[in-house]
Design a protein around this nucleic acid. Structure first.
Lengths: 227, 227
DNA sequence: AACTGTATGTGAACAGTTTCACAAACCAAA
DNA sequence: TTTGGTTTGTGAAACTGTTCACATACAGTT
């Protein structure tokens, strides 16, 4: 029940100004801005306006400014935003001013894809542990990672200070494994199991169902709703 | 510019009752209901109330009923919904009363995971084609699929009546490939490239960025917003 | 130092979504 | 056939998120 592992001493974290909860869509867009600002930084762009930021993502300038305004005033009137400064600010807001330890559970199709996913380390996520329950896989090397026995899940998660768990197992064992993960004190789970996952209120789950993503598109195809 | 390939002759498709656009969240939840109803059907459950349907997904009963009411009245007052009937109705709404031809572009980490993804055929999606630009991969067998040369992309997509494309390539070539896909007449794309994708208004894109999914969780971790 | 042009930050208006609350409808039992 | 218990379907209310529009502030120029 320790507060949060390491504590940043130097940084006064940027918090929402008022007490109102920030919407999911705003957080999602902040990620988007952060990603785009990275591209712009590589291009050598120094300054960007909310108009440009919006157009590149098919949003509105007002939307961009409003999103940012929840956390402070980062721009310069008449000029726009400094690409690198804004990127740093957003990184701070969404917690990308540090690295995160990740464990992947399940070395099937999706699990092993994520282990080798080069984008993760680039974005601040280090896959430190990999689990499976298959004796043939345990101990073997998967894309440079030694596969651990899921029977040691709780202990290993604790010992390695894992912040985030990616769950890539079938639906049937998913809830049971999640209970173990929660017992180990992990507060954030990204699940690819196509089933509902139940956790205590202080644990955050994000569920990704690949088929559901496609189903969203099939709905659009059969209904042709004007964008 | 052909309207849509095959046309269902027998089914009078369920459309929203009024002209108002149905919200993304409603469509997403319909998928959720459909998935859950599948589980209930396997369990042998015959009838379900909006209350049960809601509790199993941490939603509210009113939400469930409102979502369904956009498309018609499928329940029986005092009793609830027939599991199998409701599942069929929702399948019809989101276009799961038929099978869909899918092509995967890019046989890297994510691409090859999706090719072997067993959930897809179970949910109505058949991966028919797989592309890459790497000469060492072209012609080889990847999880039972022959890898095609991306240079034949447009022709192959057309010839095989592909409905949906899954894009699993790096950001840099993504937009160019999408333009090809659009030129082939494909109207729906699920992209895993971590960059913005631009398409004409009659083409639907859904972008999945694995790192952004994790970033959503890191925001929650550093801000601990009360759920 | 004053002026011009531009882009931010933000209350207020608007639009969209969720929840509420209840009449209507049905099942089952007597 | 009537009654009691239950759950739907849905307008209206409440809430949340987006867009508007403009005062404010700054950069750059003269």
């Amino acid at each position: 029940m320790g507060e949060s592992g390491q504590q940043s001493a130097s940084i006064e974290r940027l918090k929402p100004q008022d007490k109102r909860r920030i919407s999911d869509s705003t957080i999602h867009r902040l990620s988007l801005y952060h990603r785009l600002l990275g591209e712009l930084e590589s291009d050598g762009t120094k300054t960007v306006s909310s108009k440009q930021l919006a157009e590149l993502q098919r949003l509105t300038p007002a939307q961009v400014r409003k999103d940012l305004s929840f956390f402070g005033a980062f721009g310069t009137r008449g000029l726009g935003y400094s690409v690198s400064d804004l990127r740093k600010k957003i990184a701070e807001i969404i917690g990308l001013d540090r690295r995160w330890n990740v464990a992947v559970i399940g070395v099937g199709n999706i699990g092993s894809a994520l282990i080798g996913f080069k984008e993760f380390p680039n974005r601040g996520f280090d896959v430190k542990l990999v689990f499976d329950n298959d004796q043939r896989k345990i101990g073997s090397n998967h894309k440079g990672m030694r596969v651990s026995d899921i029977r040691n899940l709780k202990e290993d998660l604790k010992a390695n200070q894992i912040d985030l768990v990616i769950l890539a197992v079938p639906s049937s064992p998913a809830q049971k494994i999640v209970d173990e993960v929660v017992a180990a004190g992990v507060k954030a789970i990204l699940s690819f199991a196509p089933t509902h996952i139940d956790v205590p209120p202080d644990v955050y789950v994000r569920s990704e169902d690949m088929s559901m993503e496609l189903e969203y598109l099939t709905y659009a195809l059969v209904n042709n709703p004007g964008k």
